[in-house]
Design a protein around this nucleic acid. Structure first.
Lengths: 211, 211, 211, 211
DNA sequence: AATGAATGAGTATTCATTCAT
DNA sequence: GATGAATGAATACTCATTCAT
């Protein structure tokens, strides 16, 4: 439903959703502390007080923005439908989904990094985070069991740990690309560099799962 | 030279280094935007104007703090001496080093995440980042070649990409532990959880490198 | 007429009077500047725009609230019927009325103090204040004349000044009890303290009026 | 000492004291809620941030202003030296002091009325209020005892209650003069009206104290 | 090298009031 | 009569930075 609202924002001109969209951009660009409520209002084309009318505070607005971002990715994760694929293809699809989603949603990366760097003050306040749990771990678990059954994956792999390692490899590439490019003197932001890296982690992971 | 001063700080009580140490703590806790120059001065026990006397601005202080943090990890990386180990052991040591260093240097994680989230404004200004290039990629490259020679690693693995994937798996675990714990309802901050995860990525990586 | 509406408020649920009752509570608790139109609306259970519909502005609402408060005390003063009592009893009744009315109508004290502290901006605008003059001075005058005639009061006492001195002694006790309690380290808000003070001013005033 | 600082303000240009003087004027005119920190800064000729540098918050500034006002009146009360006068003269001097001090320090009246109307939030926080207790009650007690000994005052009069009744009669006249003038249609702010009232309360009180 | 005082530009938030229905 | 949405102008307070010594 939150999703629907976000979409509607640009069509129906619903003020709340327009503000939310503006907030997402501002928070992604500047982080929580760097973001300015004034700037969000300006981006939305509405006035600042409406931000408070609808969201109460900068913190609450950030929390809602985070919740929306998560609710969005969760919706996409459901569409993945890993169960319909052969185990190895499912893993590849998972990696590719992760890479492409992050590549296209830099704001998600920044908000996540920011929230964690801040110690998670908004996640802590959020009921939505506690409620909605990701379907992904379940799906990965099914895939791993199927792979074991087919003899293509080794036994004893923990789905959550596998998820974290894949998420880590993909997230880190985008999240810390700036400092890495600076340190190693190699531009990691090109499509070519990304394609090479993608092949690397696909190969590493698939080989790593083999019995 | 900055390094030398840092060492001296704790011995001679050199004001510049005392401030730098205070800044590292403050920046790590609050991020760049959340950090307060007043707070850094208070932590240092010295006065605010000295901060400006020595560092000129909050931005410059942050840049120096980042450089110091990097220069420190680089020093430790040199001590790794991967070349003296059998290839597989070298990879394990690399993973263990990464995990333990990050576990003990949360401030490094936060500063790195923060700097990248902000778009790398301080790294961009830093000459130190350009100058000092990590010895690590070189070391990993040698290890990979040795592994290939010994027939324990497959061919064609890019040392930088391997480094990124290992760094990703380790960094992400600490950096985004807060939101992950919230979403998956599993406390990832316990030593036990970390030990299990460590075994997972060691196994995944070693298997992933096998021919 | 306004009075009639106030009565109706609690019976018929007349919106205007419900708002007025809410306003009295809010203004009494917070003073004019501290009071919030939002808060008055919330207390009334009605919405903010109705406040404007009925009263036009916060200032006007305050003025009407003040007028109501005054019109109420004036009604009670009429009931005093000092003329039917022996002169000394009349003075005692006046003092007791003043004490008990103020004790039960703290909101009247606060609004009065607030209005005067602010320089009387609302009284100045009010026609009602100019129109309705208190019957009290007249009644006190008659009592004083009767007392003189009976030889129990001395001559030449000005009814208004007597009123002011009695009002001062009673009003001040309630109005400034907080700071006095703090300064003199004695709790003046207990019924016992009040009873002792009542006896003091009764004795002082009666003795003070004797020929 | 606080007194000394206030004096110094206008001579030495001590910023803290200049702000304090400006605050007294602003708070007296507008009350706590009506006063504006911007306005205080403007009155002081200094900038707003200095207000926060020296006082921390509007509330704290108000508290200090109140404390200063009280510390000032207390100093003057000490100078009264009632003990050196015949008992009846002492009471007259007390009344005259009270009237003239209040007449000349309207800001004291307003701040006191305001603080009490607000429920005493600043007095409650103030250590200075708890510490410094007025010498007045002691002095009045001595005067009453002397009067009894000389046979000019009756027995059993409580010094605090006498003080409150005198303070009430004098304070109320100034504090609520605006609404009273409006209601009774008589201008109470003229020197003549005040002189008449003064004679009234002197006569009432002295007669009231007679055996 | 060290420090207390001073400041301009901002920063989240509030509030009385109005609009549109 | 009644209401949800919208807004301009403030409002207390903050913060990096500089001045003067």
């Amino acid at each position: 439903m939150a999703k629907t609202q976000t979409r509607a924002a640009h069509k129906a001109g619903n003020a709340r959703d327009i503000i939310l969209a503006a907030a997402r951009v501002e928070f992604a660009e500047k982080g929580f502390n760097g973001a300015r409520v004034d700037s969000i209002a300006a981006r939305s084309g509405l006035n600042k007080q409406l931000v408070y009318y609808y969201f109460g505070s900068k913190d609450d607005l950030y929390r809602v923005t985070l919740e929306e971002a998560y609710s969005e990715i969760r919706l996409r994760e459901k569409d993945l439908d890993l169960r319909s694929l052969p185990p190895q293809d499912a893993i590849v699809r998972l990696i590719d989904f992760s890479l492409s989603y992050l590549a296209q949603h830099r704001e998600f990366i920044r908000m996540l990094a920011d929230e964690n760097a801040l110690g998670g003050p908004h996640v802590r306040e959020s009921e939505a985070f506690q409620r909605t749990n990701s379907p992904l771990i379940e799906m990965i678990g099914a895939t791993l069991r199927e792979g074991e059954a087919q003899g293509v994956f080794r036994k004893g792999i923990d789905p959550l740990n596998l998820y974290i390692s894949i998420a880590g490899m993909t997230f880190f590439y985008f999240a810390n690309g700036i400092t890495m490019s600076a340190i190693f003197g190699r531009d990691l932001s090109t499509p070519e560099a990304l394609a090479v890296y993608r092949d690397h982690i696909v190969a590493l992971t698939l080989a790593g799962l083999r019995p």
